[in-house]
Simulated scan of single mutants.
Amino acid sequence: MVSDLMTWQITLPIALVAAVIGYLLGSIPFGLLLTRAAGLGDVRSIGSGNIGATNVLRTGNKKLAAATLLLDALKASAAAWIVGYLFGAEAALIAGLFAFLGHLFPVWIGFKGGKGVATYIGTLLGVAPVMVLVFAAVWLATALTTRYSSLSALVAMLVIPVALWILGAEKVAAVMAIMSAISYWKHKANIARLMSGTESKIGAKG
Rank of each mutant, 00 (worst) to 15 (best):
D72F: 01
A66V: 05
K75N: 06
L71P: 02
K75T: 10
V43A: 09
L74P: 03
I46M: 12
A53E: 06
L34Y: 15
T59R: 11
L69T: 01
V83E: 13
G88D: 03
L74S: 02
T35K: 13
L71C: 03
G60F: 03
G60V: 02
R44L: 07
L57V: 05
L69N: 01
T35H: 13
A99H: 04
A92N: 12
G31P: 12
I28W: 07
A99Q: 06
S77K: 00
I28G: 02
F87P: 13
T54Y: 02
L69V: 02
G96Y: 11
I46V: 14
I82A: 06
A78H: 00
G60Y: 05
A38T: 02
S27Q: 13
A53T: 05
A99C: 08
L69S: 02
G39T: 11
I51E: 12
V56K: 08
A99P: 07
S48N: 11
A99L: 10
L69E: 04
A99W: 09
N61E: 06
L93Q: 03
G47R: 05
A92Y: 12
L97T: 12
N61A: 10
T54S: 13
A66W: 05
S27H: 01
G49H: 05
G60D: 09
V56L: 08
I46S: 14
P29W: 08
G41C: 11
I46N: 12
S27Y: 06
G88M: 01
A38W: 09
K63H: 10
D72V: 01
L86M: 13
G88F: 00
G52I: 07
G26D: 15
D42F: 03
G88E: 05
A73E: 09
S45W: 04
L32I: 08
T35L: 13
R58A: 00
G41M: 10
G47T: 04
L97F: 15
T35R: 14
N61D: 13
L34W: 14
A79N: 04
L86K: 03
S27V: 08
A79D: 12
G96E: 14
A91T: 06
L93S: 00
A38E: 08
S48R: 10
A79H: 01
K62M: 00
L32G: 06
L64T: 03
E90H: 02
L74E: 11
A78N: 01
F87A: 15
T54D: 10
N61W: 03
